[in-house]
Design a protein around this nucleic acid. Structure first.
Lengths: 136, 136
DNA sequence: TTTGAAGTTTAGAATTAGTCTAAATTCATT
DNA sequence: AATGAATTTAGACTAATTCTAAACTTCAAA
């Protein structure tokens, strides 16, 4: 029988390319775009291609190792934080910040009741002005 | 002095094109994309161009007459509902549904405290399976 | 009633993010 | 070493959106 790569744990089956992409995301406090990840990964692995970054991101996302955030204004961003959490987005400069508001998680049943959806996750987004922009 | 169009209320200064775009959005229960709006607006106003639909959407959005929703998976969607509300997105078919969970609005101060942002609005997103997909 | 500035519309080109394709490569098992 | 599945690569392609520059509208002031 042929090896079933799928039986292994995600961490075990990382190719060099996937490893590099994961390291870029884990090494950053912020939320890089696929293009930023590509530029940085290329420093370690000069032959890596754009398509591979996207393939790797899809893989890592499905394996639960990274988290994708789409909030409009351009490209998806990737987050090393995979636990449930919330986001704040600056209306002025676009900065995206993670925070955790456990009370938001508690609203999942109420949200499910109102929407009639079978709930999987909830996520709260705050829009406002970030501390840096408030200063100016 | 030249007339300051900006002094008037948004509703008063709608061009035929902006009017047509607004009517398309107001006539629908769902959340059409720019392309869907373009196709429908063209039935009333055959010469309207794609760029004008986008210009109109930006204008209407800034005037607070429509609401833009970006949740990834392709194009922005536009919503006639401009009051604060929440969204549920189906992980299976991508359907987007509005609902209002006032408890979510109550979390704005707590979210501001955690994130250190000066708050403007909060919005809750539920991901799960919609009633239609649950049946199958 | 013409003028002209400001704003708007138009068509199409340009840009950007992301996906697809097909050939080449890797790699774990035989 | 040979096999075959999975992955990577480069570049073509697609879809969404923005940009550009010329033409058109509007309307207050001359």
């Amino acid at each position: 029988m042929v090896a079933k790569t799928e039986n292994r744990k995600p961490e075990e089956k990382l190719t060099r390319q996937r490893e590099a992409v994961l390291q870029v995301i884990r090494s950053r406090e912020d939320h890089p775009t696929a293009n930023e990840i590509f530029q940085t990964a290329r420093e370690q692995l000069p032959t890596i291609s754009y398509a591979t970054v996207y393939n790797s991101l899809r893989f890592l996302k499905e394996a639960g190792l990274v988290h994708e955030i789409k909030f409009g204004d351009g490209a998806s961003r990737y987050d090393r934080e995979t636990d449930r959490h919330d986001h704040a987005i600056c209306n002025e400069c676009g900065k995206l910040v993670d925070f955790d508001l456990p009370q938001a998680a508690d609203l999942i049943q109420a949200a499910a009741r109102k929407s009639k959806f079978q709930p999987a996750s909830v996520h709260l987004t705050l829009r406002g002005i970030c501390p840096d922009c408030r200063k100016s």
